[in-house]
Every structure is written in C-alpha cells, then in structure tokens.
Design a protein around this nucleic acid. Structure first.
Lengths: 150, 150
DNA sequence: GTGGCTATTGCGAGTTGTTGCAATAGCGAT
DNA sequence: ATCGCTATTGCAACAACTCGCAATAGCCAC
C-alpha cells in the first residue's frame, strides 16, 4: 500500500510534516497506514499491535511519539477509556463524548448535539470550555438505574 | 499510632472488615493510618510511597488490593487524573468534580451544586446517571480562552 | 489454647506507557 | 551526488498498575 494512494488527509501527511521541518520516516508511514485502516477509536496498545503486524520491528515508544506529532496535526486526538488507558480518536470530525455504564459494562457515544448541551452546562458558571471527548464518563445507564430502583 | 484512637470512620474499619468475613492485617492497618492522615485526594503512587515510609516492606499490589476493599466499604473512591492515572478521594463526602486546564495546567474542584447541574445535563436525554467524580474533565479555563481570543 | 478453613500476602511476570541518550538517517542546501 | 544539521529512532530503564499462584496467617469454633 502506498501512502500517496490513500485518501486525504493521509496522502498529504508527508508534505505537511516536511513543511514543518519534521521528517517522513518508514516508521511514521507504518503508523499512518494503520490509522488509515482504522476509523473510529483505537487504543494505544491496539495501534502498537497492528503496526507490529505490518512491521515486526516496530518499537512502542516510536509509535507513541508518532501519535503525539499526529495529534499536533489534528489527525488524531487522544483520550482515556473508563480505566484511564489511552484511546485515540482517528480523524476527529464531530465533537462527541463517551459514556460507560459501570454496572452493565456498556460503552456508547453521545452525539454532537448532546455533547454541546453538556459543554454548555459546564461553561455555565465559570466559563470552562470542556473537551468532552477527552475522557469516558462513567456512571450508570438508565436501564441499570431502573433495575436498581425496583 | 493506634488505629482505635483514630476518629471515625477509621476506628471501626477492623470491625467492619471482620463482620464481612474479611481480615484485619498489619498491611491494611498501615494503609488505614496513611489514609487517615491524608484528607482530600491522593494518587495511587503517593499512597504506596507513604505506606513504604511507615513500613519499608510494603508491596504495591497489597496496597492497591486494600484500596479495592476500602472502596467497597465506601471509605475511598477512585478516579482518574488528567493523564488517566489513579487518584483516590478519601472519605468522599459531597459529590464533586475536577476540572483541568490543558493550557495553564491548573486543576480545581467544582462543588456539589455545579456538579449537580452537570449531572442533570447528562441525565437529560437518556437517563444516564454520571459519576462526575470519577474523571478529571479536561479543557480550557475561562482565562486561557480569553487569552487565546485576543 | 489449638486447629482448620480460607482470606491475604508476597513475588514474579506482564501490560501500558514514558523518558534520556547515543547512534542513525531524513532533508534542504550546495 | 554529497554534506551537515538536527529530527527520529532504538534501546534500556523506569513508572504505575494488574494478575495468578503458592505460602502464610487471621479468625472462628471447639
């Protein structure tokens, strides 16, 4: 697979890096290829795993460092799952959040609209602009609350 | 220091454990003594560190396991800091949350009232009961937003 | 006070990252 | 095509936990 043949914004990553005085390396190419094939969410460990599948000589620290620069380019955004582990949002388009029910273990997304409502509630008193996508909110879903009440 | 001479709820921990068929051990005593002297918030690493100061033979896994049982008794509650690391709320009285500004690095608490407003916003559409204290919300504080806008 | 059941401990290995440092290798200039 | 500057890499060590398992030791009953 050739990076140049990938859809935007992946195909222009090499140029964007060079324009910033950064470099285009085989290791970064591997990470990009993996990310291009993984829309949505991926944990750090998964990413490392998939890179190693393509290139057995992949080193974890290199992957994590590459993710840092890709985050600066806005291609990924890191957050934390219910256990605090790293999770990357690939091509973060719409602002969205994650909810996790501690009782039934389910995790799901809240769309842009709800996210905006929550952000507004937080901005309320002291003007804090929350990055709602950064963490997974933990609690109990409506079903489990109802079950506990009965 | 004698655990029995500590203020409640610490002094009754040994009995509460035994009543549940659990055991009162020197290792658990050490953790209790440390927690009793650490109101507010402590990270897992800090706790291990302080236990080791009292008893050099302290083993991390024992401390973490003790914290698990103390969480079941409601004496601590674990959460995650902005980097996803564990953080324990000692004697969680009022429901409260934590905000962290990614730009200036400050972290502060939001009181019970604000926490309730945020929880209400989340409960809104689908009845999700958030545990607002479980994670540290990341974003930008009003000052940094204003500074960026100018 | 002793004995037995089983909760806990200690330990070693594994997971998920992070960091410092010397060696390597992109990239723009010549 | 070559050179030099310096961004990156690989490696090794560390940080913060987590888990399985055999050995230890609380606790309750007698």
């Amino acid at each position: 697979m050739d990076v140049e043949s990938l859809p935007e914004p992946w195909s222009s990553v090499s140029d964007r890096l060079r324009r910033r005085g950064l470099r285009w390396t085989p290791q970064r190419r591997t990470v990009i290829e993996v990310l291009a094939g993984a829309d949505g969410h991926v944990t750090g460990a998964e990413l490392v795993e998939r890179c190693r599948a393509r290139d057995a000589s992949t080193i974890p620290s290199t992957v994590y460092r590459t993710l840092d620069v890709l985050e600066e380019l806005g291609l990924v955004r890191h957050g934390h799952d219910p256990n605090g582990r790293e999770e990357f949002h690939v091509l973060p388009a719409a602002e969205h959040g994650h909810l996790h029910c501690r009782e039934c273990g389910a995790t799901w997304e809240v769309g842009e609209e709800r996210a905006a409502t929550i952000a507004a509630a937080l901005r309320g008193a002291d003007g804090f602009e929350v990055d709602i996508g950064h963490v997974t909110l933990v609690g109990r879903c409506a079903d489990c609350v109802a079950r506990a009440a009965s």
